[in-house]
Simulated scan of single mutants.
Amino acid sequence: MDTGVEGLPKPEVKIENIVATVILENQLDLNLIETKIQDVDYNPDQFPGLVYRLESPRVTVLIFKSGKMVITGAKSINQLIHVVKKLLKAFADQGIPISGKPQIQIQNIVASANLKVYIDLEKAALEFENSLYEPEQFPGLIYRMDEPRVVMLIFSSGKMVITGAKMENEVYDAVKKVARKLKEADAIIGIAE
């Protein structure tokens, strides 16, 4: 996806973490899963769910008796879907009953970006509505974008953290939009090498 803005270097964008919930139509026997599936931790006195850590891809799945699961660590939607399929196949191979089709909901996508420019955060703060910049408290500008609905931490180095996206393309749209807005606000003070 093209995230560039004319006259500026093409930014680097990387999805760091996708948090999603998966809802199954049936309840799960966590004791059975613990005995049948490797790499799980289940200590109901400490935590009501079972913790399943996959090495490849490196993700963690919290599995609850209700049939709800929380997946963290995926780097793309495709990887997330692969994890769900891999998990359901492992359940099926071990005779753990699953009924219906799982519902997957993206809760949050966290990404990083580098615009490869230096930014005057004071000037950006004056131009960006819904922003907060208090350098004595935090070195970055906090910008709450309405469309797409994300929160961005923007640093003078041109690096950013984007959170709150529900789809990967929202991350790329937000980066392009903020780069354009910084250029229009004349808040870009140089190209980073």
Rank of each mutant, 00 (worst) to 15 (best):
A74G: 13
T163F: 00
T72Q: 03
Y143V: 01
Y52Q: 10
A125I: 12
V70Q: 03
G140I: 06
L153T: 03
L88G: 07
A125R: 09
N108D: 07
E168N: 00
E168V: 00
I162E: 04
G164A: 11
I109W: 03
A113G: 11
G67T: 05
I119M: 04
N130C: 01
M69P: 01
Q79N: 07
Y118W: 11
A165N: 04
E129F: 07
V117A: 12
I71E: 05
G67D: 02
V151P: 00
I119N: 02
K86R: 14
F128I: 09
A74I: 11
K68N: 01
F91M: 11
G140M: 09
P148F: 00
K89G: 03
I71K: 04
L121M: 11
Y52W: 15
Q79S: 11
Y133T: 03
E122P: 03
G100A: 07
I104Y: 08
I104R: 09
R144I: 07
K89E: 13
R149F: 00
P57Q: 03
E129K: 11
G67Y: 09
K159E: 15
V110H: 04
S131E: 02
L115S: 11
L121K: 08
L87Y: 10
K75A: 09
M167Q: 14
Y118T: 12
R144L: 07
G95L: 14
L153A: 01
S156P: 13
L87S: 10
S157H: 08
F128P: 12
I142D: 10
K159C: 13
V59T: 12
P135L: 06
E134M: 02
K116F: 15
V161C: 04
D93Y: 05
L80H: 05
N169S: 13
E134T: 06
N114P: 08
M145V: 13
K123P: 04
L115C: 09
S131R: 04
K85P: 04
S56M: 13
Q94A: 15
I96P: 08
I154P: 00
A124L: 08
P139W: 08
R144Q: 12
T163W: 00
Q79A: 07
F91A: 12
N169W: 05
N169I: 02
G100N: 06
N169H: 13
G95E: 14
G140Y: 10
M69F: 02
A125W: 12
P139I: 05
P97F: 07
I96D: 10
K65E: 15
A92L: 14
E122M: 12
V117D: 11
I77W: 06
Y52A: 12
G140L: 06
G67P: 02
L88R: 09
V110N: 05
V51C: 06
N78H: 14
K116C: 08
S156R: 14
D146C: 00
E127S: 15
G140V: 08
K75R: 15
S157D: 10
Y133Q: 02
F91I: 09
V117N: 10
G164R: 05
P148A: 00
L141Q: 10
E136K: 15
N130R: 14
V51R: 05
P135I: 04
V171M: 11
V110T: 04
Y172R: 06
G140S: 09
K101Y: 12
S112D: 14
N108G: 01
K166D: 00
A74E: 12
V161G: 05
V83T: 08
G140Q: 10
G158K: 09
K85Q: 15
I77M: 13
I162R: 03
R58G: 01
D93A: 11
